[in-house]
Amino acid sequence: MTGIVKWFNADKGFGFITPDDGSKDVFVHFSAIQNDGYKSLDEGQKVSFTIESGAKGPAAGNVTSL
């Protein structure tokens, strides 16, 4: 699925993605970002991701920028 990064705190390594389908915002951890180098996201960035079952509920996985 796709969405827009609502916010991401690079110091803490997590944030939230707002899915394009209008569903509830999804937690994203830096370890789910699939790019080389520094793993961070920018507010407003368009991303593709999967929904994984995290310890505290749904979380984004396999996050790639579009």
Rank of each mutant, 00 (worst) to 15 (best):
M1W: 09
M1I: 10
T2S: 09
T2Y: 07
G3A: 02
G3S: 00
G3M: 00
G3P: 01
G3E: 00
I4L: 08
I4S: 09
V5A: 02
V5L: 04
K6E: 03
K6P: 01
K6M: 04
K6H: 10
K6L: 05
W7T: 03
F8D: 01
F8W: 14
F8K: 01
F8L: 02
F8G: 01
F8M: 02
N9E: 05
N9S: 11
A10E: 08
A10M: 10
D11K: 14
K12Q: 09
K12I: 10
K12E: 06
K12P: 02
K12M: 13
F14M: 06
F14V: 06
G15Q: 00
G15A: 02
G15R: 00
F16R: 03
F16S: 03
F16I: 06
F16C: 04
F16L: 05
I17G: 00
I17K: 00
I17V: 04
I17P: 00
I17W: 00
I17A: 01
T18M: 12
T18E: 08
T18P: 00
P19C: 07
P19I: 05
P19N: 04
P19K: 03
P19W: 04
D20S: 10
D20K: 05
D20L: 08
D21H: 07
D21P: 03
D21N: 11
D21G: 08
D21F: 07
G22N: 08
G22T: 04
G22C: 09
G22W: 06
S23L: 06
S23P: 05
K24M: 11
K24F: 09
D25Q: 06
D25L: 06
D25P: 07
D25G: 04
V26L: 12
V26K: 03
F27T: 02
F27Y: 10
F27I: 03
V28H: 00
V28F: 15
V28I: 07
V28A: 03
H29R: 04
H29S: 05
H29M: 04
S31K: 09
S31T: 13
A32Q: 11
A32I: 03
A32M: 06
A32E: 07
A32Y: 04
A32P: 02
I33E: 02
Q34D: 10
Q34K: 13
Q34G: 08
Q34A: 13
N35C: 15
N35M: 15
D36W: 09
D36A: 13
D36M: 12
D36F: 10
G37P: 09
G37A: 09
G37R: 09
G37C: 13
Y38K: 14
Y38G: 10
Y38T: 11
Y38E: 10
Y38N: 11
K39R: 11
K39H: 09
K39T: 08
K39Y: 08
K39L: 08
K39V: 07
S40A: 11
S40N: 09
S40V: 13
S40L: 11
S40G: 11
S40I: 13
L41Y: 03
L41S: 01
L41P: 02
L41T: 02
D42A: 13
D42V: 15
E43A: 15
E43P: 15
E43S: 15
G44P: 01
G44K: 05
Q45F: 05
Q45L: 07
Q45V: 10
Q45Y: 05
Q45A: 11
K46P: 09
K46Y: 10
V47F: 01
V47T: 02
S48W: 14
S48E: 09
F49Q: 00
F49W: 02
F49I: 02
F49N: 00
F49K: 00
T50V: 12
I51V: 11
I51D: 02
I51N: 04
E52N: 11
E52P: 03
E52L: 13
S53D: 13
S53L: 15
S53N: 14
S53F: 15
G54E: 10
G54P: 04
G54L: 09
G54F: 09
A55T: 12
A55C: 12
K56Q: 12
K56S: 11
K56C: 13
G57D: 04
G57N: 07
G57T: 05
G57R: 10
P58Y: 09
P58D: 10
A59L: 12
A59D: 04
A60R: 02
A60W: 02
A60K: 02
A60P: 01
G61D: 07
N62G: 08
N62P: 02
N62T: 09
V63S: 01
V63P: 01
V63F: 01
T64H: 13
T64I: 14
T64S: 11
T64M: 12
S65A: 14
S65H: 12
S65G: 11
L66E: 08
L66G: 06
L66W: 06
L66P: 07
L66D: 07
